[in-house]
Design a protein around this nucleic acid. Structure first.
Lengths: 227, 227
DNA sequence: TAGATTGTTAATCGATTAACAATC
DNA sequence: TAGATTGTTAATCGATTAACAATC
């Protein structure tokens, strides 16, 4: 498998192409050119063709790509033509929101169980997945041969849970904790830092404050949260 | 402002540096070299120095960078030295999880209100922010001079809400809907596609399925959700 | 056939890395 | 002073874009 040779931006765009193609399929579109696929995805026809060419020849000159066929090919490439069982570690607000999220399943990911240390959460079933005690994590992962995990724990706990997961044989971790974690070679870690995304926005939006009122009126302490 | 000249990867790493520096400050570290800052952040000392050099001279040869000072500088650059009021549109599971998330405020973002069309949600207060009817969105944004919005609506609704937001003068949108949206020039849109991140993991983790059992045992229909 | 569009190569562009004089 | 580390330039590397012969 010469997966190492493929530039990361290419793999990322594969996901975007797949998403777009699935939307098109939903609209009943049956074939599409690289140009049309590129439009709206802020890329170019050449980029689309070059990206796909890393993996094979999926189109026909003069015609374009068959939508249904390309979807299947991309799923095979991304390994989402089967459904992956995934564990969620941390069943706080973010973890539970992810568990409830309909849509992962259609993309090939089934959040089968969650793990936490809070007695208030353990025993709950959220989005169809039971929340169990963290102590049961490794046994569950090993027994069910789970390969992927979502990490939604507080930053201080992230590295420790990462270690547990890696020991248990997890091969891919999606980390929502705003801290960079280390995993042994062979384990892929992806970081999703929501605050960092907001910072990218504020950088581009610029320094122009709203009227002083808008900036000063904001609360510094939060009102106690309900439900 | 020559912000256009700065490569996007540089701005992104600025957020990572800031996050790391804030963690260091919490540990009481007072000064740090580009090498130490780069370690653990999967980058190099040269990259750190080059990135910072786009914005000025913040270190001292032979010494390094003062942590507290560099934090302040990075906040100024990213425009998070003041707190931005932000609206959340869509108060479903994801929207409410974001509203409850403590930690945005410390990063310079205050989720001041949410908007939805569901009567079940309107009137609730989540994470200190009231959920109001979508009809009130534009007036609120205009009156409070809000510049940034988080979009957490179903994909079909995303473009419509985006249009509303842009009309009301929003300048930055963080889009969680798994669909690519268009906004007029001057409005920055960032996409967060969680399923796409999982796909990147499955690509790297590879095609090796677990034992057939693990793949086949997964549910196809979800059990009705409790909380 | 004529028009459209692919796959692929070569040219351009942009980002990262290496190296080092300047400085604390 | 000697050791460390910066800011910055030049060299390398990698990714995107342009162009076009091949093909439907």
């Amino acid at each position: 498998m010469k997966r190492n040779l493929i530039p990361p931006p290419v793999v990322w765009r594969l996901s975007l192409y797949l998403r777009e193609l699935q939307a098109l399929a939903g609209e009943g579109v049956e074939k599409i050119s690289s140009r049309k696929l590129a439009d709206g995805l802020q890329t170019t026809d050449a980029q689309v063709r070059k990206d796909l060419a890393y993996f094979g020849q999926f189109g026909r000159p003069g015609v374009g790509y068959r939508v249904a066929e390309l979807i299947q090919q991309l799923k095979q490439i991304l390994n989402t033509d089967k459904v992956w069982p995934v564990v969620v570690v941390g069943a706080g607000d973010m973890g539970r929101a992810l568990l409830r999220h309909k849509g992962f399943l259609a993309k090939g990911f089934n959040l089968v169980a969650a793990f936490d240390i809070s007695d208030k959460l353990i025993g709950m079933v959220v989005g169809g997945a039971p929340i169990r005690h963290l102590d049961e994590l490794q046994e569950f992962v090993l027994q069910s041969d789970i390969r992927m995990a979502v990490l939604a724990v507080p930053p201080q706990a992230a590295q420790g849970v990462c270690n547990l997961l890696c020991e248990a044989g997890i091969r891919g971790i999606l980390n929502f904790a705003p801290i960079s974690i280390c995993a042994p070679g062979g384990v892929t870690v992806r970081q999703v830092d929501l605050a960092a995304h907001l910072e990218q926005l504020s950088f581009h939006v610029g320094a122009q404050s709203g009227p002083p009122g808008a900036m000063l009126r904001v609360r510094t302490t939060r009102i106690a949260t309900e439900r």
